Computed example of a mutant assay.
Amino acid sequence: MDRQALEGKVVLVAAGAKNLGSLISRRMGERGAKVVVHYHSESAQADAEDTVAAIQNVGSEAFMMQGDLTHPANVVALFKEAKSRFGGIDIAVNTVGKVLRKAIVDTSEDEYDAMFDINAKAAYFFIREAGKHVNDDGKIITIVTSLLAAFTDGYSTYAGGKAPVEDFTRAAAKEFASRGISVTAIGPGPMDTPFFYGQETPERVAYHKSSSLKIPS
């Protein structure tokens, strides 16, 4: 998307402080968008500050807001503040997610609940609030995972938690279509982030790369 298409648009990025979320936030800012950078907890505050500063340094507006989006009230507050600060929202991107590589027989109930809260529940209520607040002809985007199309072990709660988002997306696409809002779920392959390599062997890294679409540079 070129700069002209995003100039003056408002983009809300959930988990927009670091890793893929920060990259999206910064690219939107570079193209002239006003960016709302959400971050989960105090541990990511410095990253959020860096991301906001980078956007402001290229001449775009940005602000950051903290909140645990597994609590729907915090999702409501995030969208409300974004509209209050910038007057509307054109694009809402949800990059919230948590990875757990663990065998089913070793997974606790607490781990299961946390994974589905983060990967499914937060996504559902993000789409709900986006459907209420994104401007007509806007866009709602959720990051899922290419593991939804892969056949592998160890990621039952991660891929399982992301899987419902495909159905949330299909339903929302139908429900919001009359307002011209596109609803999309994007499943990227492995990303060069600390939480990926620490739990994988070189052989498994190669497998995950082979299951993802290769895009020429």
Rank of each mutant, 00 (worst) to 15 (best):
M191C: 11
T193F: 03
K214M: 07
L213V: 14
Y158G: 11
R101P: 05
A17T: 04
V183M: 11
F86G: 02
V183I: 12
A82C: 05
K174R: 14
F116V: 03
A53M: 06
E49H: 00
G97P: 00
R26C: 05
R204A: 08
V93I: 14
N74L: 02
L12H: 00
A163V: 09
A46R: 06
D110N: 13
E7C: 05
Q199V: 15
G198Q: 14
G8T: 10
F151S: 10
K18M: 09
T201N: 06
A177C: 10
A82T: 03
A53H: 06
F79T: 00
G21P: 05
G198L: 10
G32W: 05
S156C: 13
M191H: 09
D68L: 01
S212F: 07
T95C: 15
M64F: 05
Q45T: 02
V35Q: 08
E111Y: 03
K34I: 05
F196T: 11
E166R: 12
N135F: 06
Y197V: 07
Q45G: 03
I118C: 06
H71C: 00
R26P: 00
S22D: 02
T201K: 08
H208N: 09
V205S: 05
A206H: 11
G32Q: 07
F176K: 08
T107K: 08
Y158N: 12
F168M: 14
S182E: 12
N57S: 15
V134T: 11
S41Y: 02
M64E: 08
L23Q: 13
A123D: 11
G160K: 05
T169V: 13
H208R: 12
D47R: 05
R85E: 10
M64I: 04
Y112T: 09
I186P: 07
P72T: 01
A103V: 03
R31L: 13
L213Y: 10
F79Y: 15
A17Q: 01
L148R: 13
P190K: 00
H208W: 11
F126E: 02
A62R: 01
G138R: 04
M64A: 15
G29N: 08
A92F: 01
S182W: 07
D106W: 09
T70L: 01
L100T: 11
I141H: 08
P202T: 09
A103T: 10
T107N: 11
K132N: 15
S25F: 02
D106H: 14
D113C: 06
K162G: 07
T184E: 12
V58D: 14
A120G: 08
G88L: 05
Y207W: 13
V11W: 03
K162Q: 07
D106G: 14
A53N: 11
N74D: 03
V183N: 03
R179E: 11
F168V: 07
I89L: 00
E7A: 10
K121D: 11
L20D: 06
R85W: 01
S22L: 01
Y112P: 02
F63P: 06
E30Y: 06
L100C: 09
T152K: 09
A149K: 14
Q4W: 07
E42H: 04
Y207L: 13
I215C: 04
L100P: 05
A92M: 03
D68F: 02
S211T: 15
E175S: 09
V11A: 13
A103E: 15
K162V: 04
